[in-house]
Design a protein around this nucleic acid. Structure first.
Lengths: 203, 203, 203, 203
DNA sequence: CATGAATGAGAATTCATTCAT
DNA sequence: TATGAATGAATTCTCATTCAT
């Protein structure tokens, strides 16, 4: 059934790579014919999209788990935990992350859909946490801008790494690069928000 | 000559997309035979790499121009101008930006090379400016980490947009999203660096 | 199915030549698309290898049939029959013989394989017969060397002919050339082995 | 000039291989344009043919040299020396030997020509020596048949080796295989001819 | 539901050759 | 004589997809 197909596709995804995941190979992996896949999925994009949803369910679970241990009373710690969970997910599931946040293939599907539920859910979690941080620090700036900035910073760090664009950074730094960069970012944010730098309100 | 080929490839790139830019189509566009391309470029990757270098020459020029108007005495303004030029370049040349910073095709080429001169050059410019900002603000943290963070933030903003992942952000915000986000980021950075948040020194 | 493909490939082989047997042409011959061939054979080499095995099955059958009529008590007659069958096969199936014993394409495949079963089988038949001849004549030399010499002699005769290198031999002789040459070779061998010329033992 | 082209082609031939010797590569090697080759040679086949003639000039020289040291009074020694020279040439110049005696490319050229002078010359040398041997041993059989048989035997030995078809012979034997096989062949021949086995006369 | 069989379109690349200049 | 530029015709192979059974 659908599950078996997705399992196989996922394994190909992670073990091989994005571009080597073909319908033929998926079919072979579950010992079916390529045509059979079309009984369960309209086309390849649908499989990709399902995989991408699977990725989001992991990401959302990881992010949820990260928050669980930390009291609501320490929003900054929660934010840090969230970011770390995101980064860890990205680096541990590169091909999946690619599919979720980089691949134009999925991108096309997303913009066709009325809404992009998996993305929204994860983003809502982040937004909520960012809002708490700001409230906590007495900052009444635009939560939306702050949230996007936080997401973008994390996405930037991991995607440059995943896309093999970190060559200009000295090699010795690579192992800790993202961790340190994120730590820096979060402390910068804390300091600035405390000193009442407000993200511009939406018009 | 080479120029015509690159022009055609670039046009296909911009008008169609990355993956639809095939040797055949490039040849058709300049009304030549596919084989003719191989007199000027060893293989497709060489064309892609040339295009990617072309992109960097524009980016470097734009970044240089952005700095020209601003006195050395105001490093933060220089940093802001640099970021803006980068963002503008990305949004004005999406497919090219994709090729330069996202596409795995180019990524593979890059990591094979001993160094990645175009990338290094651009990055050096940013690093230098970031260093000036830090000096100016009396911050003696790790320039390398700060530079990467700045790049990652900008790259994150534009690449989420280019890759069509901004759906979770309210539509009304989209037109100014990146501008506001970048403005927020830069003010945060200024404030924090002034208050002596130091990026962790490398080990 | 496979058979049809091999038939077509074989026909192209015989009617045209080795190098003109392309995937495209094979596909055309059976009125299919080139891609269809890849459902039945991994790549061109597999088709070639199958053809080569086909050739060996004919050769082995012919050689077996040749031996059937002749009593074990007359090893020399058996040897002569074997050689004649080999020669006849080569001259009747030139392109196939080329593929089996000359073409570098198949040669490469063969040396990659752990063993070359079709070749071994045929060779074993010859070795066994040569051994019988030697035993019969009371010669205890190295069977291996004698076998190779016999094979080489026959292969030399037919391959020079197949490769169109017989021009230096007077035209008038051509029709019987190989037959006479083989007859001479076999009588020479008989005479010498009887007079106890022993192939050097292996070290 | 022609010489430079042939030199380059020859080097490609020996260092690379038959099939990698393309017009482009030859031209590159002498730092000319592909088109330039056509001022000196009608087409690729003409270059190949010239190369093949070059091969024969070496072979004829080697065979001549081999005979020089040995007195006319010992025809069998002369024959042995001739065979050895032939075999050594083949094994030392595999690609060239291929071109001279195996490749269908050259084969086609040969059969178009009225006569095949290089081949004839070499063959005449062999025929003459074989004739001496027979005279010496008091055998009045058909020299033509005997000559062809001798050539075929040698050609068979080396061409099976060059074409990678020796797998059925135990590996341990390979280093000496041809030497021993030839030695065996020659002793067989000597013994048999002495005992008056006559190659059948031509009709 | 699933197969087997096949399509059609297209991918990158390579080659010998030609010809105006 | 030689170049530079380009052709044209092939080459093998891969993919998503369709459809009668």
């Amino acid at each position: 059934m659908r599950e078996a197909i997705l399992q196989a596709a996922l394994r190909l995804f992670l073990e091989e790579s994005f571009e080597r995941t073909t319908m033929r190979r998926i079919a072979e992996a579950i010992e079916y014919t390529p045509g059979a896949l079309y009984s369960y999925f309209k086309d390849k994009d649908e499989i990709l999209y399902a995989l991408h949803e699977h990725g989001f369910s992991i990401l959302n679970r990881d992010m949820g788990a990260a928050l669980e241990a930390i009291p609501l009373s320490d929003p900054l710690a929660r934010f840090r935990a969230l970011g770390r969970a995101y980064i860890r997910f990205a680096l541990d599931n590169r091909e999946l992350y690619d599919l979720m946040f980089i691949s134009p293939r999925t991108g096309k599907k997303i913009i066709e859909r009325p809404d992009w539920e998996p993305g929204h859910r994860a983003y809502d979690g982040l937004r909520h946490t960012v809002a708490s941080v700001m409230t906590h620090l007495g900052n009444d700036g635009d939560v939306e801008i702050a949230t996007y900035t936080a997401w973008a910073a994390c996405h930037g760090m991991v995607s440059l790494m995943i896309c093999d664009r970190c060559a200009p950074v000295p090699d010795a730094l690579h192992p800790d690069l993202i961790e340190k960069s994120f730590e820096f970012f979060i402390r910068v944010l804390e300091s600035a928000l405390t000193n009442v730098v407000t993200p511009t309100a939406a018009p």
